[in-house]
Design a protein around this nucleic acid. Structure first.
Lengths: 110, 110
DNA sequence: TGCTCATCTGAACAGACGTTCAGAGTAGGC
DNA sequence: GCCTACTCTGAACGTCTGTTCAGATGAGCA
Protein backbone atom coordinates (compact mmCIF):
# COMPACT_ATOMS: atom_id res chain seq x y z
CA UNK A 1 0.00 0.00 0.00
CA UNK A 2 1.35 3.38 -1.00
CA UNK A 3 -0.95 6.01 0.50
CA UNK A 4 -2.82 4.60 3.54
CA UNK A 5 -4.51 7.90 4.38
CA UNK A 6 -6.04 8.26 0.96
CA UNK A 7 -7.01 4.60 0.94
CA UNK A 8 -8.93 5.02 4.18
CA UNK A 9 -10.54 8.26 2.99
CA UNK A 10 -11.70 6.79 -0.31
CA UNK A 11 -12.90 3.63 1.39
CA UNK A 12 -15.21 5.61 3.65
CA UNK A 13 -16.83 7.36 0.71
CA UNK A 14 -17.59 4.21 -1.27
CA UNK A 15 -21.30 3.40 -1.74
CA UNK A 16 -22.65 0.54 0.38
CA UNK A 17 -22.39 -3.02 -0.92
CA UNK A 18 -26.10 -3.42 -1.57
CA UNK A 19 -26.26 -0.29 -3.70
CA UNK A 20 -23.23 -1.32 -5.74
CA UNK A 21 -24.83 -4.65 -6.45
CA UNK A 22 -28.12 -3.09 -7.49
CA UNK A 23 -26.22 -0.78 -9.82
CA UNK A 24 -24.34 -3.67 -11.39
CA UNK A 25 -27.62 -5.52 -11.93
CA UNK A 26 -29.07 -2.49 -13.67
CA UNK A 27 -26.17 -2.32 -16.09
CA UNK A 28 -26.24 -6.08 -16.51
CA UNK A 29 -29.77 -5.84 -17.83
CA UNK A 30 -28.47 -3.56 -20.59
CA UNK A 31 -25.40 -5.65 -21.37
CA UNK A 32 -27.03 -7.97 -23.90
CA UNK A 33 -27.50 -7.10 -27.60
CA UNK A 34 -30.89 -8.74 -27.87
CA UNK A 35 -32.24 -6.99 -24.81
CA UNK A 36 -30.95 -3.70 -26.19
CA UNK A 37 -32.73 -4.42 -29.45
CA UNK A 38 -35.95 -5.04 -27.56
CA UNK A 39 -35.57 -1.75 -25.70
CA UNK A 40 -34.75 0.29 -28.80
CA UNK A 41 -37.74 -1.32 -30.50
CA UNK A 42 -39.92 -0.11 -27.65
CA UNK A 43 -38.28 3.32 -27.84
CA UNK A 44 -39.32 3.56 -31.48
CA UNK A 45 -42.55 1.60 -31.42
CA UNK A 46 -43.97 2.79 -28.13
CA UNK A 47 -45.92 -0.36 -27.26
CA UNK A 48 -45.47 -3.75 -28.90
CA UNK A 49 -46.65 -7.30 -28.33
CA UNK A 50 -44.32 -10.26 -27.83
CA UNK A 51 -44.74 -11.71 -31.31
CA UNK A 52 -44.10 -8.37 -33.00
CA UNK A 53 -41.02 -7.84 -30.85
CA UNK A 54 -39.81 -11.23 -31.98
CA UNK A 55 -40.43 -10.30 -35.61
CA UNK A 56 -38.62 -6.96 -35.27
CA UNK A 57 -35.57 -8.35 -33.49
CA UNK A 58 -35.35 -11.72 -35.22
CA UNK A 59 -35.40 -13.50 -31.87
CA UNK A 60 -37.56 -16.51 -31.06
CA UNK A 61 -40.74 -15.78 -29.16
CA UNK A 62 -39.54 -17.88 -26.26
CA UNK A 63 -36.30 -15.94 -26.06
CA UNK A 64 -38.20 -12.66 -26.17
CA UNK A 65 -40.45 -13.80 -23.37
CA UNK A 66 -37.49 -14.78 -21.20
CA UNK A 67 -35.80 -11.46 -21.88
CA UNK A 68 -38.93 -9.44 -21.15
CA UNK A 69 -39.36 -11.24 -17.88
CA UNK A 70 -35.89 -10.10 -16.81
CA UNK A 71 -36.57 -6.54 -17.97
CA UNK A 72 -39.86 -6.56 -16.11
CA UNK A 73 -38.27 -7.79 -12.87
CA UNK A 74 -35.92 -4.83 -13.00
CA UNK A 75 -38.76 -2.39 -13.66
CA UNK A 76 -37.39 -1.41 -17.05
CA UNK A 77 -40.51 -2.35 -19.00
CA UNK A 78 -44.16 -2.71 -18.07
CA UNK A 79 -46.85 -4.92 -19.52
CA UNK A 80 -50.48 -4.35 -20.45
CA UNK A 81 -52.61 -7.46 -20.93
CA UNK A 82 -55.45 -7.52 -23.42
CA UNK A 83 -57.03 -10.91 -23.88
CA UNK A 84 -54.29 -13.31 -24.86
CA UNK A 85 -52.03 -10.50 -26.00
CA UNK A 86 -49.32 -8.87 -23.88
CA UNK A 87 -48.24 -5.37 -24.86
CA UNK A 88 -44.91 -4.18 -23.51
CA UNK A 89 -43.59 -0.63 -23.20
CA UNK A 90 -40.80 1.25 -21.42
CA UNK A 91 -41.49 2.10 -17.83
CA UNK A 92 -39.69 5.45 -17.71
CA UNK A 93 -37.19 7.61 -19.57
CA UNK A 94 -34.03 6.39 -17.88
CA UNK A 95 -33.30 3.83 -20.57
CA UNK A 96 -33.11 6.49 -23.24
CA UNK A 97 -30.81 8.58 -21.08
CA UNK A 98 -28.51 5.66 -20.39
CA UNK A 99 -28.33 4.81 -24.08
CA UNK A 100 -27.59 8.43 -24.97
CA UNK A 101 -24.74 8.75 -22.49
CA UNK A 102 -23.27 5.42 -23.57
CA UNK A 103 -23.50 6.51 -27.19
CA UNK A 104 -21.67 9.70 -26.37
CA UNK A 105 -18.97 7.70 -24.65
CA UNK A 106 -18.54 5.54 -27.74
CA UNK A 107 -18.23 8.59 -29.99
CA UNK A 108 -15.56 10.09 -27.74
CA UNK A 109 -13.65 6.84 -27.80
CA UNK A 110 -12.02 7.37 -31.17
CA UNK B 1 -47.30 -11.23 -36.31
CA UNK B 2 -49.99 -8.73 -35.40
CA UNK B 3 -49.02 -5.42 -36.98
CA UNK B 4 -46.73 -6.00 -40.00
CA UNK B 5 -46.59 -2.31 -40.94
CA UNK B 6 -45.38 -1.23 -37.54
CA UNK B 7 -42.94 -4.12 -37.39
CA UNK B 8 -41.35 -3.02 -40.67
CA UNK B 9 -41.28 0.62 -39.61
CA UNK B 10 -39.63 -0.10 -36.26
CA UNK B 11 -37.21 -2.52 -37.86
CA UNK B 12 -35.93 0.18 -40.20
CA UNK B 13 -35.23 2.55 -37.33
CA UNK B 14 -33.23 0.10 -35.24
CA UNK B 15 -29.53 0.96 -34.77
CA UNK B 16 -27.08 -1.15 -36.78
CA UNK B 17 -25.80 -4.43 -35.36
CA UNK B 18 -22.30 -3.20 -34.72
CA UNK B 19 -23.50 -0.22 -32.70
CA UNK B 20 -25.83 -2.37 -30.62
CA UNK B 21 -22.97 -4.68 -29.80
CA UNK B 22 -20.66 -1.85 -28.82
CA UNK B 23 -23.39 -0.48 -26.59
CA UNK B 24 -23.88 -3.83 -24.91
CA UNK B 25 -20.14 -4.09 -24.30
CA UNK B 26 -20.11 -0.68 -22.70
CA UNK B 27 -22.84 -1.66 -20.27
CA UNK B 28 -21.20 -5.03 -19.72
CA UNK B 29 -18.10 -3.26 -18.44
CA UNK B 30 -20.25 -1.66 -15.76
CA UNK B 31 -22.17 -4.80 -14.85
CA UNK B 32 -19.70 -6.12 -12.26
CA UNK B 33 -19.69 -4.98 -8.60
CA UNK B 34 -15.91 -5.05 -8.31
CA UNK B 35 -15.42 -2.99 -11.44
CA UNK B 36 -17.99 -0.51 -10.16
CA UNK B 37 -16.09 -0.28 -6.89
CA UNK B 38 -12.90 0.45 -8.79
CA UNK B 39 -14.63 3.18 -10.77
CA UNK B 40 -16.25 4.80 -7.74
CA UNK B 41 -12.87 4.69 -6.02
CA UNK B 42 -11.39 6.61 -8.91
CA UNK B 43 -14.33 9.00 -8.83
CA UNK B 44 -13.52 9.79 -5.22
CA UNK B 45 -9.75 9.39 -5.22
CA UNK B 46 -8.97 10.92 -8.59
CA UNK B 47 -5.84 8.91 -9.36
CA UNK B 48 -4.81 5.70 -7.59
CA UNK B 49 -2.23 2.96 -8.09
CA UNK B 50 -3.11 -0.72 -8.45
CA UNK B 51 -2.11 -1.72 -4.94
CA UNK B 52 -4.12 1.09 -3.35
CA UNK B 53 -7.13 0.19 -5.48
CA UNK B 54 -6.78 -3.37 -4.21
CA UNK B 55 -6.65 -2.12 -0.62
CA UNK B 56 -9.70 0.12 -1.07
CA UNK B 57 -11.87 -2.49 -2.75
CA UNK B 58 -10.63 -5.58 -0.91
CA UNK B 59 -9.82 -7.29 -4.20
CA UNK B 60 -6.58 -9.13 -4.93
CA UNK B 61 -4.00 -7.18 -6.90
CA UNK B 62 -4.19 -9.71 -9.71
CA UNK B 63 -7.93 -9.34 -9.94
CA UNK B 64 -7.61 -5.57 -9.96
CA UNK B 65 -5.07 -5.75 -12.76
CA UNK B 66 -7.33 -7.96 -14.85
CA UNK B 67 -10.28 -5.64 -14.27
CA UNK B 68 -8.30 -2.51 -15.10
CA UNK B 69 -7.13 -4.07 -18.31
CA UNK B 70 -10.74 -4.54 -19.38
CA UNK B 71 -11.64 -1.00 -18.35
CA UNK B 72 -8.64 0.32 -20.24
CA UNK B 73 -9.53 -1.58 -23.42
CA UNK B 74 -12.93 0.10 -23.36
CA UNK B 75 -11.39 3.55 -22.80
CA UNK B 76 -13.06 3.96 -19.46
CA UNK B 77 -9.84 4.50 -17.48
CA UNK B 78 -6.39 5.70 -18.44
CA UNK B 79 -3.01 4.88 -16.96
CA UNK B 80 0.02 6.99 -16.10
CA UNK B 81 3.25 5.06 -15.55
CA UNK B 82 5.86 6.30 -13.11
CA UNK B 83 8.71 3.90 -12.63
CA UNK B 84 7.28 0.60 -11.52
CA UNK B 85 4.01 2.23 -10.42
CA UNK B 86 0.87 2.51 -12.54
CA UNK B 87 -1.59 5.25 -11.64
CA UNK B 88 -5.11 4.88 -12.97
CA UNK B 89 -7.81 7.51 -13.39
CA UNK B 90 -11.12 7.98 -15.21
CA UNK B 91 -10.83 8.91 -18.85
CA UNK B 92 -13.90 11.16 -19.05
CA UNK B 93 -17.10 12.14 -17.25
CA UNK B 94 -19.43 9.63 -18.86
CA UNK B 95 -19.02 7.11 -16.07
CA UNK B 96 -20.33 9.52 -13.49
CA UNK B 97 -23.29 10.37 -15.71
CA UNK B 98 -24.13 6.71 -16.27
CA UNK B 99 -23.95 6.01 -12.55
CA UNK B 100 -26.16 9.01 -11.79
CA UNK B 101 -28.87 7.99 -14.25
CA UNK B 102 -28.80 4.39 -13.04
CA UNK B 103 -29.08 5.60 -9.45
CA UNK B 104 -32.08 7.70 -10.39
CA UNK B 105 -33.67 4.67 -12.00
CA UNK B 106 -33.16 2.64 -8.82
CA UNK B 107 -34.78 5.35 -6.69
CA UNK B 108 -37.81 5.48 -8.98
CA UNK B 109 -38.16 1.73 -8.81
CA UNK B 110 -39.89 1.66 -5.47
C1' DT C 1 24.90 -8.35 -9.66
C1' DG C 2 21.36 -9.78 -6.66
C1' DC C 3 17.07 -8.78 -4.23
C1' DT C 4 12.50 -6.73 -3.49
C1' DC C 5 8.33 -4.75 -4.89
C1' DA C 6 4.54 -3.24 -8.10
C1' DT C 7 2.42 -4.80 -11.95
C1' DC C 8 1.11 -7.78 -15.52
C1' DT C 9 -0.11 -12.16 -17.79
C1' DG C 10 -1.95 -16.98 -19.21
C1' DA C 11 -4.13 -21.14 -17.78
C1' DA C 12 -7.68 -23.33 -15.33
C1' DC C 13 -11.54 -23.84 -12.60
C1' DA C 14 -16.26 -22.83 -10.86
C1' DG C 15 -20.27 -20.21 -11.50
C1' DA C 16 -23.47 -17.45 -14.25
C1' DC C 17 -25.84 -16.58 -18.59
C1' DG C 18 -28.78 -16.96 -22.92
C1' DT C 19 -30.51 -19.82 -26.00
C1' DT C 20 -33.26 -23.83 -27.58
C1' DC C 21 -36.58 -27.30 -26.81
C1' DA C 22 -40.71 -29.28 -25.19
C1' DG C 23 -44.65 -28.45 -23.00
C1' DA C 24 -48.34 -25.91 -20.17
C1' DG C 25 -51.77 -22.26 -19.72
C1' DT C 26 -55.27 -19.28 -21.60
C1' DA C 27 -58.24 -16.55 -24.68
C1' DG C 28 -60.78 -16.28 -29.06
C1' DG C 29 -63.05 -18.28 -33.33
C1' DC C 30 -65.56 -21.91 -35.33
C1' DG D 1 -66.57 -28.67 -27.29
C1' DC D 2 -62.58 -28.29 -30.40
C1' DC D 3 -58.76 -26.10 -32.45
C1' DT D 4 -55.62 -22.36 -33.20
C1' DA D 5 -52.75 -18.55 -31.75
C1' DC D 6 -50.14 -15.89 -28.21
C1' DT D 7 -47.66 -16.17 -24.22
C1' DC D 8 -45.23 -18.17 -20.49
C1' DT D 9 -42.27 -21.53 -18.07
C1' DG D 10 -38.57 -25.06 -16.54
C1' DA D 11 -34.82 -27.92 -17.83
C1' DA D 12 -30.68 -28.61 -20.28
C1' DC D 13 -26.88 -27.49 -22.98
C1' DG D 14 -22.92 -24.84 -24.58
C1' DT D 15 -20.68 -20.52 -23.85
C1' DC D 16 -18.86 -16.76 -21.54
C1' DT D 17 -16.85 -14.64 -17.28
C1' DG D 18 -14.25 -13.55 -13.06
C1' DT D 19 -11.51 -15.31 -9.89
C1' DT D 20 -7.30 -17.72 -8.18
C1' DC D 21 -2.82 -19.43 -8.86
C1' DA D 22 1.76 -19.55 -10.50
C1' DG D 23 4.98 -17.29 -12.82
C1' DA D 24 7.06 -13.48 -15.74
C1' DT D 25 8.40 -8.68 -16.48
C1' DG D 26 10.63 -4.54 -15.22
C1' DA D 27 12.09 -0.70 -12.04
C1' DG D 28 14.50 0.70 -7.90
C1' DC D 29 18.10 -0.01 -4.48
C1' DA D 30 22.16 -1.87 -2.12
Amino acid sequence: MVDPDRVAAVQHRLPPTLLVEELSETFDVLSDPNRLRLLTSLLEGGELCVCDLAAVTGMSESSVSHALRLLRSHRVVKVRRDGRMAYYSLRDGHVRMLLDVALEHLQHEG
